[in-house]
Design a protein around this nucleic acid. Structure first.
Lengths: 190, 190, 190, 190
DNA sequence: AATGAATGAGGTTTCATTCAT
DNA sequence: CATGAATGAAACCTCATTCAT
């Protein structure tokens, strides 16, 4: 995933940017080609179809997200600290990569999403779920279907990031902590 | 809003259904016309363009949601009871009207959404915000920008409903209560 | 022709005005209806089709032109004076009724024109031709097919009027006389 | 202008022919495509829109006319001879290229024309005007706004050609000379 | 006589995709 | 590998016309 042909990467990045700005509708292949400085036909060397391109873009975004989050993880933390760090670093990733956030949200709310393999579509939640199950083994968290809990947590991250990106609120250190605390209090045993 | 010409309503409902199933892309005007049993041109009697149709559909969904929620409200409840009732009844509305849920989520994550007036786009959150401000006057809720809190609450409702509709979890009375409790614990002063 | 039903006249006049501003293309029946303050269906009480409306409009314009020109004719003039008067008064009619001028020119250069009866299409030239034949009987005019001469004269009138209406030149008394003289010198025996 | 891509030229020529036969109305892009033996979409490779196509067609006609007229010019002629030659060769060009004549006349009487740049729209008259100004320097022509005189001359050429093409008169050598003489007598000092 | 909602054929244009170079 | 002219199905939309009221 790190050694993408230069042109392939240019195509992915251009598409990501254009979809952020114009949505799926407003992103014809001809425009992707122009923005990526390649010929229209070249795109079809790397992707079978527009659908394929978009599906791969979703993988590409998940990969970028994963890579970013891993950088922040450390071992010497207790469970709560670890939760705060994860929540905040994910949220900051979306804020620093708005085109990823907008693309993912459009994608998961489109007819593309149900066509992903489960393994693929649930990967981000799964990582959170493993974390939850670790918490459960220590009896820290409240009783709840871990899958549902993971979904709620993931949504809280994305929602906060989008609110910031849409300019509806401004998130600073203070607010990140408030939000992480808020979500923490919603999942822990009181 | 209650006396929509019969054909106009048929067009709105058909579009809603089709977008749920096929997304914006997969919903050409010709298909809307066929599904609504009107001629293609008739749509343009009621809506200036496809864009207009979709924008009006958003208003229409907000209206339907509002009307549904109001049915459940009662006066003789304390603040927490009222919160639970509201959270659960909204969530159930989305579950009982999946086409509304799917449409709204597609819409707010599309380039259409930023083109709505603020007044229009923030109406659902505003209603929640007023509720929050009432809570604040009683000193019940934790310190936090009410706008942000409203956004987080609204998102939790939609997220839970979608998880259910996508078949990822199954929400029953038990789970509704758990979820409402979870969100309640995240906003109240501990 | 003088007792046109009020609505019929409103339709004709609206069409004339709209075609001047927007051309045939830019003049849909719905717009004619709105401008004339009648319902779309009403137009079809008075005219079989849009084509019929346009054909009748041509007659209507010829009638208006004829009526205007006749007002100016007097008996006690020699041939040349009469020519000048006719040339100038026709030219002024077009300038004072630009919508007629623009419509006629569009009409005669459209596929409608060849579908007119000869009698109809040549009426304006015929009147000029009778005048020419009178001149010929007095041996005043140069040898030339009277039909061709009539066409050339008629065209000179319209051309001058359009140049004025398009703002390319400004015609005042002086210029009218120059022009009439110019055309007169082109048809008389030198 | 001489090395137009083969397909582009086919599109222009087909459009020209079709507009002659059916007018602007009766010339849908689909028919242009079929007649030019290209796909509908191909037209939009070369022209932004139907409007653009028609505007470019006007330039193309002016270019063809210009090229044709230049072939006939010679140096060793006095002013009057030169005038006759120019008048007649232009008139014959229109007669030999009726689709150009019909297109130009439709175009200049349509809402397209006012949208041309002045430079563009007055080019044919300008060339005549320069000729007139040369005549004025020799004191040969009568006193008159050269612009107006140019317009009248240009119109006489087109009018004669159209009368012939419409079958209203038949122009042969004899008549060309008569007409050129007639116009010459209308502009020269008597 | 008059209305205007409704029709649907057909117009212009877009765009994912192909293929000869 | 890469190009981009060419394709043509299908999208959005218009508008002359009809007909129940």
């Amino acid at each position: 995933m790190e050694n993408l042909a230069e042109k392939k990467k240019a195509i992915l990045e251009s598409t990501l940017q254009l979809i952020k700005e114009n949505g799926f509708h407003g992103t014809p292949m001809s425009l992707v080609a122009k923005t990526a400085n390649v010929a229209a036909g070249t795109i079809y060397h790397y992707f079978d179809s527009k659908d394929t391109l978009i599906m791969e873009l979703f993988s590409y975004c998940q990969y970028r997200m994963q890579a970013a989050v891993e950088q922040h993880l450390r071992q010497d933390m207790d469970f709560q600290e670890s939760f705060f760090l994860r929540w905040i670093s994910r949220c900051q990733f979306y804020i620093q990569n708005p085109e990823v956030a907008f693309f993912i949200e459009q994608f998961v709310n489109s007819p593309f999403y149900p066509r992903c393999s489960q393994a693929q579509s649930e990967r981000p939640q799964n990582e959170i779920m493993q974390f939850i199950e670790a918490g459960n083994r220590h009896g820290i968290l409240r009783e709840m279907d871990p899958k549902l809990m993971a979904i709620m947590i993931h949504s809280s991250i994305m929602t906060a990031a989008k609110a910031h990106l849409d300019g509806k609120v401004q998130l600073r250190n203070e607010e990140f902590k408030q939000l992480a605390q808020m979500v923490w209090d919603s999942i822990r045993k009181l």
